[in-house]
């Protein structure tokens, strides 16, 4: 355990993150990069971007509360130190996505009300299931919920958003690149640290799998709500896009041509596939919400 944790030291984090891919960035993107004028000038597109970004803030606030809460639940100091770096990563994500809301024209005084208005209730419940475990200082369940389920979801969502924005919004695509690199590290820690603990505590499997099942239910409901809400926006975006636009391919689907239901399907399939693989690696069975 000690050897693998040395790869997750604060020194390694400093070298790879603040002194690595974040060096010379401004809120996670290149200095001077701005949101595209075509989006800022179109009320439908701008509102959709605000709604989407609010979900990112809600998710990252949950991740911040969970990772900081897990520091004190960790059974060893090396895990505490990794979780310290994760706490700051999540705080950075809260900060950069909150900054994006300001860049999209939300006034500072309206931040809280905007977040309350657009926060998806299913995403809020998803967070509550996780934070209940963290509040009880249940380290194993907390890390599975946080570093496998929440981070696994975030990783796939960010990758899909990155594919969508790569050709049209370099500022947001760059912001997402840094968060994807962070999430990859967090998921890696979850898989590496928890496998041995699950083996030591097989009696916890059923309870943790139930948590995963509940979180997955709320996640899929969030996806369904979100893609339903922006189906018109997707159509309008497709109608305005240039026929010569480069394909935005995500797991074999061209997001520049797919409708909202196809997007929802590819995202859900990708996340659930990742869950099955990652949970299998740590000795847990994926439970479908439909079971």
């Amino acid at each position: 355990m000690a050897d693998f944790l040395s790869g997750y030291s604060i020194q390694s984090w400093l070298e790879s993150c603040p002194q690595g891919y974040l060096e010379d960035t401004d809120y996670g993107h290149g200095a001077g990069e701005k949101e595209p004028e075509e989006m800022l000038g179109n009320d439908t597109f701008r509102e959709d971007a605000i709604r989407t970004t609010v979900q990112l803030v809600v998710g990252e606030r949950a991740a911040l509360a969970a990772s900081s809460g897990l520091v004190n639940a960790a059974p060893d100091d090396s895990s505490k130190m990794f979780l310290a770096t994760q706490t700051l990563d999540e705080a950075r994500h809260v900060e950069i996505f909150t900054q994006r809301l300001l860049d999209l024209g939300v006034r500072k005084d309206d931040l809280d009300s905007t977040i309350s208005r657009y926060a998806n209730p299913n995403l809020v419940k998803f967070a509550e299931v996780l934070l209940e475990k963290v509040d009880k200082k249940d380290f194993i369940a907390g890390v599975v919920g946080q570093n496998i389920v929440l981070e696994g979801m975030a990783f796939s969502v960010f990758e899909m958003m990155h594919a969508t924005n790569d050709g049209t919004n370099p500022k947001f695509a760059h912001t997402l690149s840094g968060t994807i690199a962070d999430e990859r590290r967090h998921v890696g820690f979850g898989e590496n640290r928890i496998g041995s603990l699950i083996k030591e505590h097989p009696e916890k499997k059923a309870e943790i799998q139930k948590m995963q099942q509940d979180m997955t239910y709320h996640m899929l409901a969030t996806f369904a709500d979100s893609f339903k809400a922006n189906s018109d926006v997707v159509e309008e975006a497709h109608s305005q896009s240039s026929p010569d636009a480069k394909a935005a391919v995500y797991h074999g689907v061209d997001l520049n041509k797919a409708d909202a239901s196809e997007m929802e399907a590819v995202l859900s399939d990708t996340v659930l596939g990742e869950f099955k693989t990652r949970l299998g690696r740590i000795g847990l069975e994926y439970l479908s919400p439909a079971a």
Binding site: I10, W13, A84, L88, A91
Partner: peptide, 11 residues
Amino acid sequence: STQVVDEGRHL
């Protein structure tokens, strides 16, 4: 959160 990582680094 910045303080958490500072304290972790000190340790």
